[in-house]
Design a protein around this nucleic acid. Structure first.
Length: 369
DNA sequence: AAAAAACGCAACCGCTACTCA
DNA sequence: TTGAGTAGCGGTTGCGTTTTT
């Protein structure tokens, strides 16, 4: 090509438009039409490039532009059209009179995308989010809650009831199966998880027969087995309540992934960690384990390291835990303040369970492993 | 009350497609 | 057919505003 950009001349103004410039542009176009955009600035007495004038006119000054909030109907139209067309903003804009492609694009990126994510819908594919990463995130979220709760009093079965304990143990084992090559998924277990209703006794039995043999769980499993089995009908949960769960998960993961390691990890800073949690995620074919320490739930800092199928050998940096215990331990050596903010029995937790069970019961998920 | 972080939007940048000589 | 000029598109950035700490 080699053509010089239209706006690289010296002295051409850039940036926000002033009301005076707007008025000049509007007056000129109303009198003469825009004609050639390249010639327009000179003719209109504007020290702007033609491209800038065109954008200002089409995105802001055009008289038929609709201002204000997008209606629910408009939102639905955008979502529907985007599911068919993707990021074809100009094509979408032709179906929404008075809205510009730029406005729709901005609205999509700042509002609708988040909205879909919170509804558990992938904004790119417009299908439910069922990826393995997300599942791991869900599991990790619950494990984090589990670990934090146990720090308070790991042996108090009144506070960590049988159902909760069984769930957490099961999660640990599930995670191990997903991340350990020599522990292929147990089909019996998968069938159990896929059933519409199962009891904690069933979960407990499964754990006892499968996981303990593999050295994945510690003796605390018996607590769950010996207490009254509570019926857990996870699959009956409504999907309309998923948004809050996904939001919580996203926020949780974002806070984990966005933080840099700091003095809080090694204790050199003023804020020594008073809790520790582990976060697992996948990075292509590698497991990534994040060991996190912080002073309050929701704002952990992290150290990141990865190895191929060897997370159990990864070093637990900040609390010096025996590496072989990483996948099974349910408590940390340090104290934790503010654990009460994490309630394993809240609705979000249950929806998370529904999500996990739903996903792990599908044949495709098993194949992924 | 001040500082920091998050948010939202207008404008810009770079690329591609189209037109025309 | 080729290449210059132009318009349009989608991604990204910068900055003012709002919210949170």
């Amino acid at each position: 090509m080699g053509r010089a950009p239209c706006c690289d001349e010296d002295g051409i103004k850039k940036g926000p438009w002033t009301p005076e410039e707007d008025q000049k542009l509007v007056d000129f176009i109303q009198r003469n039409g825009h004609g050639s955009w390249r010639a327009l600035p000179k003719l209109a007495g504007l020290n702007r490039c033609g491209k800038s004038c065109r954008l200002r006119w089409t995105n802001y000054l055009r008289p038929d532009i609709k201002r204000g909030r997008f209606s629910d109907e408009e939102e639905q139209i955008i979502i529907k059209l985007h599911s068919h067309m993707g990021n074809k903003w100009s094509a979408i804009a032709t179906r929404l009179p008075g809205r510009t492609d730029n406005e729709i694009k901005n609205y999509w990126n700042t509002h609708l995308k988040k909205k879909l994510l919170q509804m558990g819908i992938d904004p790119v594919t417009h299908k439910p989010r069922t990826d393995l990463n997300h599942l791991l995130g869900s599991i990790t979220h619950l494990l984090m809650a589990s670990n934090l709760g146990n720090l308070m009093n790991p042996w108090d079965s009144a506070l960590m009831d049988a159902a909760q304990l069984a769930k957490m143990q099961w999660l640990q084992s599930l995670l191990s199966m997903m991340t350990t090559s020599n522990n292929p998924p147990n089909m019996e277990a998968m069938n159990l998880m896929g059933s519409p209703a199962f009891t904690d006794r069933q979960i407990s039995e499964f754990l006892r027969s499968n996981c303990q043999l593999n050295g994945l769980l510690d003796g605390s499993l018996g607590v769950a087995h010996d207490l009254m089995p509570m019926q857990s009908n996870f699959s009956n949960l409504g999907t309309q309540q998923l948004p809050c769960l996904y939001q919580a998960l996203d926020e949780s993961c974002a806070s984990l992934e966005g933080q840099e390691a700091s003095g809080a990890i090694d204790g050199s800073g003023s804020k020594a960690p008073n809790y520790n949690i582990n976060h697992y995620s996948t990075d292509n074919n590698h497991m990534v384990m994040s060991s996190c320490g912080g002073t309050a739930p929701g704002i952990p800092t992290q150290t990141l390291f990865s190895s191929s199928s060897e997370i159990v050998k990864a070093e637990a940096v900040q609390d010096h835990v025996n590496p072989t215990e990483i996948s099974t331990r349910s408590s940390a050596s340090t104290t934790f303040e503010g654990w009460g903010e994490l309630n394993l029995d809240d609705q979000a937790s249950d929806y998370c369970w529904a999500d996990i069970i739903d996903q792990t019961s599908s044949p495709s998920w098993r194949n992924d492993l």
